[in-house]
Structures are given as C-alpha cells and as structure tokens.
C-alpha cells in the first residue's frame, strides 16, 4: 500500500473523508477493517462506524463529519435491498455523496446496483490500489 499513497495526496490538498460501515445485522467485518487501514494508508481520513449501522446512523455520520463518500461492506446477500436504500437515504437528506460497495456481490448484480446509483462495486480480492482508486474516482466524479 505504500507505493500508491503519494500520487493523489499531491493533487488533492484536502484529505478525502470516508464513512465506513456495515449496514444491518451482518457481522462479517474483516474486509471492512482491512479496507479502513488501506484507505488510511492511502492518506484518507476514515470515519469507522463498524457494525450494526442503519441508513439513518450513516446519514447522520456523513452530515456530522462532512464526509466525501460512504463505503459499505456486504456479505449477507442483502446488497440489492440495502445498497439502493442507502443511496436513497443520502439523497433524501440532500447529500450528494457517492456510495461504494465491497464484499460478496455477484457480477450480475453489479449493473442493478449501478442503476440504483451506487458509484462503485468492488468484488472479493480487489487489490488495494483498485479500492483506493475506486473511492477517489467516485468522489472526483461528484465534485467535477
């Protein structure tokens, strides 16, 4: 992770802030914790909410922390319900913040999530550079 952490921090004067959370009951938090450290190593500020969050607790964190992105980790086949719900909740709160989803998402579900407004979907085993780039690109697209 050390190799990729210089490029974007040179370009972006402000540190990118991302809220990371598990939505719902799913307790698989290994991936989310690893991603938290990857993003932190890449120079981002990580607001780690951890387990058992609701769309409203995540919206509140985004507002409070003035976050640039939301990262969700999904392992319980709930992504098609919860992903769009998260996007909608942020929109309802008037927040133009991209949602990035990682975890176990079958490839054929990805278009459905993109259609619902999810900014990026990262599959199992996605390399660190891809995770970092996906978050940066998602944020850049919103602010462009």
């Amino acid at each position: 992770m050390s190799a990729d952490s210089n490029s974007a921090t040179d370009e972006a004067p402000e540190r990118l802030r991302i809220v990371l959370a598990k939505l719902g009951l799913d307790g698989h938090d290994r991936g989310l914790k690893v991603v938290a450290r990857i993003l932190r190593d890449a120079g981002m500020e990580v607001i780690f909410l951890g387990l058992r969050q609701t769309t409203s607790s995540i919206v509140a964190a985004v507002e409070q922390e003035d976050a640039d992105a939301v990262g969700l980790s999904m392992h319980n086949a709930g992504h098609l319900t919860l992903g769009p719900k998260m996007v909608q909740a942020l929109a309802d709160a008037g927040l133009d913040v991209p949602v990035v989803i990682g975890g176990i998402v079958p490839a054929e579900d990805e278009p459905l999530l993109y259609q619902a407004g999810v900014a990026a979907v990262l599959g199992p085993g996605a390399p660190a550079t891809e995770v970092v780039e996906a978050v940066r690109a998602a944020v850049a697209q919103r602010t462009a």
Partner: peptide, 10 residues
C-alpha cells in the same frame, strides 16, 4: 426493522 431483507436468507 433490523430483519428487513434478512428473513429466511442465510
């Protein structure tokens, strides 16, 4: 409300 989308799934 916590159960939404999870009932009978796993």
């Amino acid at each position: 409300e916590w159960a939404e989308g999870e009932v009978g799934r796993a």
